[in-house]
């Protein structure tokens, strides 16, 4: 019968700490610890080292051009990751690139999370025409490859950190809206919502106080994984020359600049990539661990 309420997962009934239990479960996994460890190390280095290092990431030094990294012949302790075609220290430049990339990605995810969740709850809980319009828009937007959308905007709009962030938000929000909408749709049919309505609670009260806290567990890992995804996009924009412009270092523009020297000084385009990938792997390990934790929780294994 149409009036019947949806089924509930076993983990739900047992209460509030779903979020906390998910994080505890993730914390018990080696992969999460490794990810967190590497991430902390990299971010720590990115925060501290550029300030302490004697090298300015932008300063050109003709005498120190094309120095190979420490593990190659001719490498020195002074330049762990070598130097680029203009004699700039790649280690410092990569760390600054990490700062920029991670900052932009995190900001973008935070914003798209808020926007997507808000629209998703509205769409799922209130439904009707808001829902129809919103879902058609997300449909449309998910039908345009992110890159086409992004480069179309960035190629003409004088890229800076704000426009890059804005483009990422524009590209990313529909997924949150859709996931959250489906959660809100399911929650709307649950008994406690009916209970609250009978008590006389307003829709706003139900949506903010009761439905919103249920959003986090299923979507937290999406957000974590998305930080990595957005970092890749940010780097890609830099690589295509439509991200943050040189000389400000970003992973993308360092790689793009060094592309020409691929054959003779291969470390210039690849070393920043190594830092980028380390960061991405650490984030992805954390996100994937969270996802596994969530799956376990909702399967009721624990």
């Amino acid at each position: 019968m149409a009036a019947e309420t949806g089924t509930s997962s076993p983990a739900r009934g047992r209460g509030e700490s779903v979020t906390r239990r998910m994080f505890r479960l993730a914390w018990e996994m080696t992969s999460f610890k490794i990810g967190l460890g590497v991430f902390t190390l990299l971010v720590g280095a990115a925060i501290i080292w550029p300030e302490l290092s004697p090298y300015d990431p932008m300063k050109i030094s003709v005498r120190e051009r094309f120095l190979p990294p420490i593990f190659l012949e001719g490498g020195t302790w002074a330049h762990l990751a070598g130097t680029d075609q203009l004699g700039r220290d790649l280690f410092v430049r990569s760390l600054v690139g990490l700062r920029n990339g991670l900052g932009i990605a995190a900001a973008a995810v935070a914003i798209m999370f808020v926007i997507g969740c808000a629209l998703g709850v509205i769409s799922g809980y209130w439904g009707r025409w808001v829902d129809i319009i919103l879902m058609r828009i997300t449909d449309a937007q998910l039908s345009i490859p992110v890159i086409v959308l992004a480069i179309t905007i960035l190629s003409v709009s004088r890229p800076n950190p704000f426009t890059v962030t804005a483009v990422l938000v524009l590209a990313g929000w529909p997924i949150y809206a859709r996931v959250v909408r489906s959660i809100a749709l399911a929650e709307r049919e649950r008994e406690y919502v009916r209970g609250a309505k009978i008590l006389g609670a307003s829709d706003l009260r139900i949506a903010t106080l009761m439905i919103s806290p249920n959003i986090l567990p299923p979507i937290a890992f999406v957000a974590v994984l998305d930080i990595a995804r957005m970092m890749i996009f940010e780097a890609l924009f830099g690589f295509l020359g439509i991200g943050i412009q040189p000389p400000t270092p970003t992973f993308g523009n360092i790689i793009a600049d060094g592309y020409k020297y691929l054959v003779n000084s291969w470390w210039i385009p690849t070393m920043p990539g190594v830092f980028l990938i380390l960061t991405l792997i650490s984030i992805n390990l954390m996100g994937a661990s969270l996802e596994r934790a969530r799956n376990k929780l909702f399967k009721g294994i624990v």
């Binding site: 690589f239 385009p269 990938i277 994937a288």
Partner: peptide
């Protein structure tokens, strides 16, 4: 494998493979 592969930016991987 999933975690590593998803962390490889396609343009960078392309460069490395070319190299």
């Amino acid at each position: 494998i999933g975690s590593v592969f998803i962390s490889l930016p396609n343009f960078w991987l392309a460069l490395v493979l070319i190299l």
